[in-house]
């Protein structure tokens, strides 16, 4: 970077960080990776899947039969005794929580201007994410549809059959 063709010494100093001629164009030169790109792609990919999962969930739980009035322990027992609904709900839990947490991360980044505020809010967000995802996953896989000693009236019909 000593070439006289770069103009005055002051300018030559400024262009000291320029890339060599004909090096490939780089939009940014930081080494922070493509995290935001992947998060952008994830929002769209998970969004498509979530439309199917959530609409199916709402249809089965609110539209079929007596809708919300039919939901009780026995209803959940009936659903989660089938691996189909276990995997459906597990996928929905994880995708919705990552999708939602990433959305809230964006909102916090937009509106919380002080570094400390932003850090605290995102710390709480990630804490809530961890608790809810771990709790939900454990519940789906450790659920007992026919607990011993429970009132049979409250259980799914296959528990007493």
């Amino acid at each position: 970077m000593t070439s006289a063709t770069h103009g005055t010494p002051a300018v030559a100093e400024q262009v000291g960080t320029l890339d060599a001629p004909r090096s490939p164009y780089m939009r940014k030169k930081t080494t922070r990776g493509n995290y935001e790109l992947y998060s952008w792609v994830f929002m769209r990919a998970s969004g498509v899947v979530l439309v199917v999962l959530v609409f199916g969930h709402l249809f089965v739980n609110l539209m079929v039969g007596e809708g919300v009035k039919a939901i009780d322990f026995a209803f959940v027992g009936g659903k989660w005794s089938s691996p189909f609904w276990q995997i459906w709900d597990l996928l929905m839990l994880w995708l919705a929580m990552i999708h939602g947490t990433n959305g809230l991360r964006t909102i916090i980044n937009d509106y919380a201007e002080r570094d400390v505020t932003r850090g605290v809010l995102k710390g709480l967000l990630y804490l809530a994410f961890t608790i809810v995802v771990v709790l939900g996953t454990l519940v789906i896989f450790t659920f007992e549809p026919c607990p011993v000693g429970a009132d049979p009236e409250l259980l799914a019909s296959f528990c007493t059959a």
């Binding site: 009780d72 322990f73 026995a74 959940v76 027992g77 839990l93 919705a96 929580m97 939602g100 947490t101 959305g103 809230l104 909102i107 809530a128 809810v132 709790l135 939900g136 454990l138 519940v139 450790t142 659920f143 607990p147 429970a150 009132d151 409250l154 259980l155």
Partner: peptide
């Protein structure tokens, strides 16, 4: 924003199936 906070509540209330049928 609203859906996210409902999701936090909804996973927690569903987790009551691990407590007892009566609680859920």
């Amino acid at each position: 924003f609203a859906i996210f906070f409902f999701l936090l509540v909804h996973v927690t209330d569903t987790a009551l199936v691990r407590v007892s049928p009566e609680a859920y």
